[in-house]
Design a protein around this nucleic acid. Structure first.
Length: 221
DNA sequence: CGGCTTTGACCCGCGC
DNA sequence: GCGCGGGTCAAAGCCG
């Protein structure tokens, strides 16, 4: 089980190396100038960004550790989904226009769908291991992004094409308590690594650019 | 006491 | 014009 985690991390590393060698200005700036590129420089920043995050089934919060501090300003039950949709705005800068909507997937309550709107106009970026204010602990897996942007446009399609992967992730993370402890320690150590958290952030950003080869987390060896 | 979440009310765009 | 539904506001309460 631990070997699987290591293998996935290696896949991530090789993927990031691929990104590093690419011409992407966003990643290039990040990696080589150590400056956070403005979101408007990002090719798909104009689109509403949707990410899917696998959470613990017993986790009833709608909190996603994505590196930013978010302040909840509203909650609404929508017609097409029984689970409430939470509205957040970025609280890291007073005039930041970034917002996000977070709602559980209608077909699978253990999947959180986060829709990002607006752009961050500040440089601050929290390490993933830090706990956002007001988040009283949650069991989010560390950004288990299970879809890319293109497929995220269609939740049903995403679910139908990734049921096996979701199942694998679930089994991998929750079925074996002993291994859960080891995985938890392993994940914890990874999340304390600033390089790794930056890498995760880059992976999230890149997952938005719908390229089939980016589904490294989905691939079953 | 300050900053947060909660939650009902309100606003506004859109379809009919 | 009206009703519906999504998004936002703001007062109240909670918590560290």
């Amino acid at each position: 089980m631990l070997e699987d985690q290591r293998r996935k991390y290696k896949n991530l590393q090789s993927y990031l190396l691929e990104i590093k060698n690419s011409k992407s200005s966003y990643v290039h700036n990040k990696l080589h100038t150590n400056k956070r590129t403005r979101l408007e420089d990002f090719p798909t920043a104009k689109k509403p960004l949707q990410v899917f995050v696998r959470t613990h089934p017993n986790d009833i919060t709608l909190i996603i550790k994505d590196g930013y501090e978010w302040r909840k300003y509203g909650q609404k039950v929508t017609k097409d989904n029984a689970s409430p949709r939470a509205y957040f705005r970025c609280s890291m800068a007073p005039n930041c226009s970034a917002k996000k909507k977070v709602q559980r997937c209608v077909n699978d309550s253990s999947i959180i769908v986060a829709t990002y709107d607006g752009e961050h106009n500040h440089d601050s970026f929290l390490p993933s291991s830090s706990t956002p204010k007001g988040s009283m602990g949650n069991n989010n897996l560390p950004l288990t992004i299970i879809e890319n942007y293109k497929e995220a446009l269609n939740i049903d399609h995403a679910l139908s094409t990734n049921k096996r992967v979701c199942k694998d992730i679930m089994e991998q993370n929750y079925n074996d308590n002993n291994n859960n402890l080891k995985i938890g320690e392993y994940v914890s150590s990874l999340m304390k690594d600033p390089e790794f958290t930056i890498a995760i952030a880059e992976a999230v950003a890149q997952s938005i650019i719908a390229q089939p080869k980016q589904q490294f987390l989905l691939e079953k060896e």
